[in-house]
C-alpha cells in the first residue's frame, strides 16, 4: 500500500501545488479583507468566478479578431490577466462601496447577509450573460497552452511514477508566486501597505494619523479582488471548463486555507493554500486506497471541510496567526 501511495506522489505534488496556488491567491483576498474589516467577504469566490468568465470572454473575443495566433501566448495571457485584474478589482471596489460601506457600523450578521446576497446576484448575472451569449452557462475557453511536459521522477528513484503536467501548470504556479511575492512586498515595503496595516490594527487611530480609512479599504478590496479575478483567469486556463457555480465551493476552500494559515495573516494564507491543495489532492488520490474502498474521491470536499472544522476547534488562530482575546 505504501508503495502505491509513493508511486503517485510526484503527480499528487504537482496537481496539489497547482490547486494550492489557486487556493492561496484566493485566500489572500479573504485574509486581507478580514484583516482590515473583520468581515468574511463571502462574495470573493464569486469575484474569482467572474474573473474566470471575464478572462475567457476576452480571450474568445481576441481569438475572434485573430490576435491570439499573431502574438505569443504568454504575452496574450499577461494582457488578459491585467485587463481582468483591473475589471474585477473595480468590481470588488464597487461591491464594497454599495454593500459593505453603508453597513460598517451595523451588527455583524448584516454585512454577512448582504455578502451572501451579492454572491447569489453575481452568480445569476454571470449565468444570464453566458447563457445569452453562448446558449449554455458552461463555457469552455480557447486552449492557450497545449504542450504536455513529463517529469521523469522515476529517474530519481524507482519508487516514483512519472508525472505529466501541462505547460499551463508552470505558468499558473509562476504567476501565482509572482502575485504573492508582489503582494508581500506591497504590504510590507510601501506607504500604502503601511497604511493598510495601520487600518487593520486600529481603524480609529489610523484615521487620527491622517490615514484615509475609506480609501485604504477601497484599495484593499481592489487588490484582493484583482488577485482573485486574475486567479480566475489562471483557473480557466488550467482547467478549461468553467461555470457560474465554481466560485462557491472554491471560495469556501480558499477560506478554509485562510483559516488554516491564520486569518488576517498574509503569509499564513499562502502557506495554508498550498498545504490545503496538497492535502486535498493527496486525499482524492489515496482515500479509496487508505480506507479500503469505503470512502472514495467524492469525499474530498468533506475532507476539506473537516480540516476547517478541526482547525477552528483546536487552533482557531491558525498555523501562523496570533491568538486574539476578545475585548469587552
Amino acid at each position: 500500500m505504501l508503495n502505491e501511495i509513493l508511486q503517485t506522489i510526484p503527480q499528487v505534488v504537482i496537481d496539489g501545488l497547482t490547486l494550492g496556488a489557486v487556493y492561496a491567491v484566493i485566500a489572500l483576498g479573504y485574509t486581507m479583507v478580514y484583516g482590515i474589516l473583520e468581515l468574511i467577504n463571502f462574495a470573493h469566490g464569486e469575484i474569482f468566478m467572474s474573473g474566470a468568465f471575464i478572462g475567457t470572454a476576452i480571450l474568445i473575443v481576441l481569438t475572434g479578431m485573430g490576435w491570439v495566433s499573431a502574438v505569443p501566448a504568454i504575452v496574450m495571457l499577461i494582457t488578459v490577466l491585467l485587463l481582468t485584474a483591473i475589471l474585477t478589482g473595480l468590481l470588488g471596489m464597487g461591491i464594497e462601496r454599495v454593500a459593505y460601506r453603508p453597513l460598517r457600523n451595523a451588527p455583524r450578521l448584516i454585512p454577512l447577509i448582504t455578502a451572501i446576497g451579492i454572491s447569489f446576484l453575481l452568480q445569476d448575472i454571470v449565468r444570464f450573460i453566458a447563457e445569452l451569449q453562448k446558449g449554455n452557462y458552461i463555457v469552455t475557453g480557447p486552449n492557450l497552452f497545449k504542450d504536455q511536459l513529463s517529469i521523469k521522477a522515476s529517474s530519481i528513484s524507482s519508487i516514483f511514477n512519472d508525472a505529466s503536467i501541462k505547460t499551463s501548470f508552470v505558468i499558473v504556479l509562476v504567476t501565482a508566486v509572482i502575485m504573492m511575492i508582489g503582494l508581500d512586498l506591497f504590504i510590507n515595503r510601501t506607504k500604502w501597505g503601511m497604511a493598510m496595516r495601520a487600518v487593520a490594527q486600529d481603524r480609529e487611530t489610523a484615521s487620527l494619523m491622517t490615514v484615509n480609512v475609506n480609501k485604504v479599504i477601497s484599495i484593499t478590496f481592489f487588490i484582493g479582488s484583482a488577485l482573485g479575478g486574475a486567479t480566475g483567469v489562471l483557473f480557466a486556463v488550467q482547467y478549461g471548463t468553467i461555470d457560474p457555480y465554481i466560485g462557491f465551493i472554491l471560495g469556501l476552500k480558499a477560506f478554509t486555507a485562510a483559516v488554516l494559515g491564520g486569518i488576517g495573516n498574509i503569509r499564513g494564507a499562502m502557506l495554508g493554500g498550498l498545504l490545503l491543495g496538497l492535502l486535498e489532492m493527496f486525499a482524492s488520490a489515496n482515500l479509496t486506497l487508505l480506507s479500503g474502498g469505503v470512502f472514495g474521491a467524492e469525499y474530498k470536499d468533506v475532507f476539506a471541510f473537516a480540516i476547517l472544522i478541526i482547525v477552528l476547534l483546536f487552533k482557531p488562530e491558525g498555523l501562523l496567526g496570533k491568538p486574539v482575546t476578545e475585548k469587552v
Partner: peptide, 11 residues
C-alpha cells in the same frame, strides 16, 4: 431567476 431575486432581496 431565483438566485437573482433572493440575492436582491437579501441585499
Amino acid at each position: 431567476m431565483q438566485r437573482l431575486i433572493f440575492g436582491l432581496l437579501l441585499i
